Simulated scan of single mutants.
Amino acid sequence: MAIQKGDFIKLNYTGRFEDGRIFDTTDEELAKKEEIFNPRGLYGGDVVIVGAGHTIEGLDEDLEGKEAGYSSTVTIPPEKAFGLSNSKLVETVSITKFQDRNVHPGLPVELEGKRGVVSRVIGRKVTVDFNSPLAGKTVSYEYTIEKLLEDDVEMIQGLLALYTGMRDMEVEITDGVAKIYVPTGLTFNQRWLMAKNRVVSELFKYAGLKEVQLIEKLTAEAEAPVPAEPEVEAEAEAEAEVEAEVKEETSESHE
């Protein structure tokens, strides 16, 4: 059966720069070998909805019309990958903006809630590039469509894993009503608070549900808190707010 927009699929992939360097992968062993392993990332394949913006545009488009089991490599230009570099996102500021005055090119920084990288230091002036590290780059993705998901619970669990980084959350479905049991720690997770409305909206649109109930699950045993924000995306991954937390974030999800 050919893959169409709105289908839930399980996708394995590896993203490379033009020089062959790997910046994102769903293969845990490869991530460790390439020294981009994220201990808080999920490996073994992502569940995505085709056409929903869960992957970069060029890869998303290439999935349509294929079938489960299909493998290929696609080269994607910047405008359909992580965007062109925007000169308006390169700013020059005073070094007094930084608490640590040991500022140097290549230093990751955060100013006024924006993440960037120092590109130049001249005297007391610091130039910071707030573009995505992947902006302006042509990339390639080697991918395999592992399966087309048809089980409703599996689809919902996969979507939840994409947004929360947690696999196999408890889900029940009866007559078009989905009950999602949310672990206590997740209810205080900033990523989840930002993403849950979008998750529910996508479940209505793509899974055909009539109602979604988010139920906080309490247990007698204390639950370990969920990290407030995954290390980012993919960067990608790129992955990188919630779309800026899936597509613009998902590339960061395995970095």
Rank of each mutant, 00 (worst) to 15 (best):
I3E: 00
K5E: 10
G6C: 08
G6I: 03
F8Q: 07
K10P: 04
N12P: 00
T14P: 00
R16T: 14
R21D: 02
I22Y: 03
D24P: 00
T25A: 01
T25M: 04
E28T: 04
E29D: 05
E29N: 05
A31H: 01
A31D: 00
K32S: 01
K32M: 01
K32T: 01
K33F: 03
E35W: 01
F37Y: 11
F37H: 06
R40F: 09
G41L: 02
G44T: 10
G44W: 07
V47R: 10
A52R: 14
G53A: 05
H54E: 14
G58W: 04
L59I: 09
L59Y: 03
D62K: 14
K66Y: 03
E67D: 11
G69L: 10
S71N: 10
V74C: 06
I76F: 03
A81G: 14
A81N: 09
G83I: 07
L84P: 11
S87Q: 08
K88W: 05
K88F: 07
L89Q: 04
L89K: 04
E91D: 06
V93F: 00
I95T: 02
K97Q: 04
K97L: 06
Q99R: 04
V103N: 02
G106R: 00
L107S: 03
V109N: 07
E110V: 13
L111G: 06
E112R: 08
G113C: 02
K114F: 07
G116A: 04
V118Y: 03
V118Q: 05
V126R: 03
D129S: 13
D129W: 09
P133E: 08
G136V: 12
G136Q: 04
S140H: 01
S140P: 01
Y141P: 03
E142I: 13
T144R: 14
K147Y: 06
L149E: 09
D152W: 09
E154R: 13
M155T: 09
I156H: 14
I156N: 10
I156K: 15
L160M: 11
A161K: 06
A161W: 02
G165A: 15
G165H: 10
G165E: 15
I173R: 07
K179M: 06
Y181W: 01
P183S: 00
T184V: 07
T184H: 05
G185K: 06
T187Q: 06
T187A: 07
F188D: 11
F188Q: 11
V199P: 10
E202Y: 13
L203T: 11
F204Q: 11
K205A: 10
Y206K: 12
L209K: 11
E211M: 15
E211K: 15
E211R: 15
I215M: 00
E216L: 14
A220G: 07
E223F: 12
A224P: 12
A224K: 15
P225K: 09
P227V: 12
A228M: 12
A228C: 06
E229V: 15
P230R: 05
E231P: 04
E231I: 15
V232Y: 04
E233T: 09
A234K: 03
E239D: 02
E243T: 07
A244M: 12
A244G: 14
E245V: 12
V246P: 12
K247L: 12
E248A: 15
E252N: 08
E252K: 13
E255H: 15
E255K: 15
